[in-house]
Design a protein around this nucleic acid. Structure first.
Lengths: 151, 151
DNA sequence: ATCCGTGCAAACCTTTTGCAAGGGA
DNA sequence: TCCCTTGCAAAAGGTTTGCACGGAT
């Protein structure tokens, strides 16, 4: 299935649709998020956007990321270190955390989702509404210079 | 199965076995951890121990918790808010996170463990060593004054 | 013209660190 | 005695906030 390639124009539309004012800062941050597959931190995004658009402040990056998360255009991902990373991919998926490189890799698998759904449908939790179930897959890369493949 | 009731003497032994010097601070912190089922934060523990043993500093609480985790006597639990909580229970288990009360409830289930083990044995992840798989079960309590039951 | 969004800096919260003094083995 | 542990306070790291200005609608 062909993946959509997002352009500046798409980012403008996304912002408008969420009734967020279209600003260079927001476009730059959306673009930085979209471009990076590495689940960047606010600091990472700050550095990235300041290459193309010098002057964007760190505070604005935080506020904007907050707005984007609020609007459902991004996801705030907690890490084992206590800080946060951001994810362009808002569809349900899980994350693989690499303990030696701090990488976060998307892990999408329909079968796993099904397995967990089935399990928790059987399991009765009383006095609660299930909101969300996330899997934190912690791994150690064997060869740091190579990527991680999932079969 | 009868649950062991730990005493001050047991805490002393545990520390010795881990070649940690036995101090009032460490005993108090172990006891606070053991007594609380609420997965307390460092701050929580600081408050608790200072009732029985006034003068224990927050810095010491942090350092001691670190030592205990290092020694395998406690577990550091990351939360969605980016701060940490501590867990007396060092056996493998998962956590239910309550979004409206910030409670963390232990979720132990052999069947779930088996399901996940089976799934990840089938699934081939290349260039990595699987270290740990944790489930983060996010729920919303319906009646805040009542507990959560698992059937 | 109206507000929302931005930049700057200060504040905040949690956690870590350095160091001198004190206490366990 | 030796060295680990403690208390204190300062620092660090990441994130949030307040406010006046500037820019989008």
């Amino acid at each position: 299935l062909a993946e959509k390639r997002y352009t500046c124009e798409n980012f403008r539309e996304m912002l408008k649709k969420c009734s967020l004012k279209v600003t260079i800062q927001r476009i730059a941050i959306l673009e930085a998020l979209y471009t990076s597959a590495l689940h960047p931190s606010a600091e990472n995004i700050f550095e990235t956007v300041n290459i193309g658009y010098p002057g964007i402040s760190l505070g604005t990056v935080y506020k904007t990321l907050d707005s984007l998360v609020q609007a459902g255009l991004a996801v705030k991902v907690p890490t084992a270190e206590g800080s946060f990373r951001y994810d362009w991919n808002t569809a349900y998926h899980n994350h693989i955390y690499c303990v030696n490189t701090s990488e976060i890799i998307d892990f999408e698998d329909q079968e796993l989702k099904q397995i967990l759904d089935d399990y928790f449908r059987k399991k009765r939790l009383e006095n609660v509404r299930l909101k969300d179930i996330r899997l934190q897959i912690n791994v150690e890369k064997l060869d740091v210079s190579k990527g991680i493949q999932i079969k």
